[in-house]
């Protein structure tokens, strides 16, 4: 399962015997590997159901099949998605951003599985080299990988990367 990715699914179950098992079977049967189940029995939703949070991992292409199978079983799926992006990081890129096609650069980021561009600010004064500040979101613990990808892109396009100094620091 080296390409498997963690996902979190939030379900709402009716308080009936066997309901939890009914919810887990479609996951296992569709290529999901259960990591943890958080069954909040004492905590009912406004609709009187029991919220359950399931962490699982599966190959990216299997995930939608798992969600479909849950729905087919009549299970209410509240939220399904890849693990939330947990860390934000800003970088500044300097150099021929426009000549090397800015939209191509953005597309490149979109194709990175563990990385997403939250926003981009461009400064391109007439008399100086242009810079772009990108705010990136990465998975928990994925910031150094994200920066490695940024360096890769910068090498390819002849850009200078101004990386963030990684360790968070407190104000003096």
């Amino acid at each position: 399962m080296s390409d498997a990715r963690p996902h979190t699914v939030r379900l709402e179950l009716t308080d009936e015997p066997g309901e939890l098992l009914n919810a887990l079977r479609p996951i296992a049967e569709n290529g999901g590997n259960l990591l943890s189940i958080y069954h909040e029995r004492g905590n009912l939703t406004p609709r009187g159901r029991i919220p359950v949070e399931v962490d699982l991992e599966c190959l990216p292409e299997r995930f939608s099949g798992i969600v479909e199978a849950l729905k087919a079983e009549g299970i209410t799926v509240i939220q399904a998605g890849e693990e939330q992006y947990a860390e934000e990081v800003s970088v500044v890129l300097v150099g021929p951003l426009i000549e090397t096609d800015l939209s191509d650069t953005l597309r490149w980021f979109e194709e990175c599985a563990n990385l997403s561009v939250l926003d981009l600010s461009l400064s391109a004064p007439e008399d100086d080299r242009p810079s772009a500040r990108l705010r990136l979101a990465a998975h928990a613990g994925g910031v150094s990988d994200a920066l490695a990808r940024v360096r890769e892109l910068a090498d390819e396009k002849g850009l200078l990367v101004i990386e963030p100094q990684l360790d968070r620091e407190t104000a003096a």
Partner: peptide
Amino acid sequence: DVPGSALSLASE
């Protein structure tokens, strides 16, 4: 190779 534009983007 650090231009003024990079410093102003950082400062924002």
